[in-house]
Amino acid sequence: MILLDGKALASTIEKDITNEGSKLRNQGIVPTLAVVLVGEDAASCAYVNMKVKACERVGIKSIAKKMPENVSEEELLKIIEELDKNEEIDGILVQLPLPKHINTKLVLEAISYQKDVDGFHPFNIGRILAGIEAFAPATPLGVMNLLKNYNISVRGKNVAIIGASNIVGKPLASLMLNAGATISVCHILTQDLAFFTRSADIVCVGVGKPDLIQADMIKEGAVVIDIGINRLENGKLVGDVAFESVSKKASFITPVPGGVGPMTIVSLLQNTLLAAKNRKIKN
């Protein structure tokens, strides 16, 4: 069994981003990411802080817009419009989830697709589905880059994706399909989940349920990508995979933490750098 070390790979990619960003700054382009946070949700605040610190490490300028929980949808849309019109801002990220009184789809569509470094705009989603270059959501992009770095080809492989969210499962399925994999997308209504996972060469899971994937649910030598992150009552962070038992059967497996998480953050930085490069070309 080989650990897929996302933390180490992310660190290497960050060095490349730092160098590329330095070249852009020398040409008068300062890569800039605007992060919008609504409310005081502890997890959301932690994620935003991680993204801001990551920007600092690689020399990407970050602008944090923090608003109260009761901000109106109209006011939030106005702020996004202002950020969108600012030609010195390359990427805009709205931290999810948003409060229930705000239409999330409306907010995400308010960001122009050229600045949608989260890859959630329908335009970018459609291009990814069609196999055309676009901003891919950070977690699926991180998964694909992690597999590529370890020379794990998905071409001709059976891939089971557990979780069909718009943020992870669906876009990951598109990227896998574009790369030549045969895809099974499983979700809460799927009957006999193990039927799909046992026949898969690669299992990707991200639903937020500790120990969902057990050793008897995967075949010998499978590649296991644990995208889930859960905090137990004792404070320990775990994924959706029963790591101790599954790791004995897997050929490759991601740890939690230190696997997909760091790759998600660095993929966001890669998208922001790409947006800055696109601004340079446009100018």
Rank of each mutant, 00 (worst) to 15 (best):
P122D: 12
L96K: 06
T139Y: 07
Q95G: 05
V117K: 03
L147M: 09
N151G: 02
I152Y: 08
V143P: 00
A136K: 09
I128F: 01
T139M: 05
H101Q: 08
G119D: 01
H121K: 08
Q95H: 06
A160L: 12
G131T: 06
A134D: 05
Q114H: 13
A134Y: 10
H121S: 05
P137S: 01
S153E: 12
F120T: 14
S112E: 04
G131V: 07
I152Q: 10
K100V: 15
F120I: 13
L129G: 14
N145K: 09
F135T: 01
Y150K: 03
F123T: 14
T104G: 05
P97V: 04
I102N: 03
K115L: 06
P97Q: 13
D118I: 11
E109Q: 12
K105C: 15
H101T: 07
T139S: 01
V159T: 10
G156F: 11
N124G: 00
I125G: 12
K100Y: 12
I111L: 06
K105H: 09
I125Q: 14
G119M: 06
P140Y: 12
A138I: 08
A130N: 15
T139A: 03
P99Q: 07
R155A: 09
I128D: 04
Y150N: 07
F120D: 04
G131F: 02
A136S: 10
K157G: 02
G119H: 09
T104D: 13
A138E: 01
G142N: 03
L106E: 14
R155C: 13
P140K: 09
E133L: 15
D118Q: 03
L96W: 08
I132P: 09
I128R: 08
G126Q: 01
L98P: 01
L146T: 00
T104W: 11
G119W: 10
L146K: 05
N103I: 11
L98G: 01
K105A: 14
I111F: 03
G156R: 15
G119K: 14
R155W: 15
Q95T: 05
L96V: 04
K148G: 01
G126N: 04
L98S: 01
T139D: 00
I111A: 03
P99R: 02
